[in-house]
């Protein structure tokens, strides 16, 4: 088995974008940030320590923000780079660099285990209180929680490859 840290090093731009997205949503929602590490050779490879959040909307955005940002960037970068390589078979180095960058970012779209668990508990509490967003987003939260559990099987990395290469292959 390839150690996760090696994959994280090979896909380091995704880690940085993931933490940047966490931080962005913290700042946007006025959540105090205690410490930030964008990348390091350790476990976890990056983190954002912030104050506890009571409001579910904020909790949801801070936890799921990287999922949206990383996924969007992955698609934006991979979609145009896919065509020359896969459709026309033109092997330009820049296309490969773009695909590596896009897939790296997509591979770190999933919220971390800590994010997933925190969101899961917050969603359950908020849904029980009748919070509309919690109820609407519950399937997504369940999916994220399940994906976190399945990250043992590299599902998070497969997701990056899926949206980076699989999605364009459905379009082109």
């Amino acid at each position: 088995m390839i150690p996760g840290i090696l994959v994280a090093i090979a896909t380091f731009p995704g880690v940085i974008v993931h933490e940047m997205a966490h931080m962005l949503f913290c700042k946007w929602r006025g959540v105090a940030i205690i410490d930030v590490c964008f990348f390091r050779f350790g476990n976890p490879v990056g983190y954002v320590v912030h104050e506890a959040v009571e409001d579910f909307t904020t909790s949801f955005l801070v936890s799921v923000g990287p999922f949206f940002i990383n996924s969007l960037l992955c698609i934006l970068i991979c979609l145009p780079a896919y065509v020359p390589v896969k459709v026309f078979g033109l092997e330009h180095p820049l296309s490969y660099v773009l695909l590596w960058l896009g897939i790296s970012i997509g591979m770190h779209a999933f919220p971390s285990i800590q994010d997933g668990q925190g969101l899961w508990h917050a969603a359950r509490k908020a849904a029980a209180r009748g919070n509309i967003l919690a109820i609407i987003s519950f399937p997504l939260v369940v999916a994220i929680y399940a994906a976190n559990v399945l990250s043992f099987f590299w599902l998070d990395y497969l997701y990056g490859i899926g949206i980076g290469l699989g999605l364009p292959s459905l379009i082109f």
Binding site: I77, P80, V83, P84, V87, F88, S95, L98, L101
Partner: peptide, 23 residues
């Protein structure tokens, strides 16, 4: 890095646009 990434996305889109058009 964020500015660089944004510029890269714009550049990559412009650079690859002719391939998308061609397709």
């Amino acid at each position: 890095s964020a500015v660089g990434l944004a510029l890269l996305i714009v550049f990559a889109t412009m650079w690859n646009l002719r391939f998308v058009r061609g397709y």
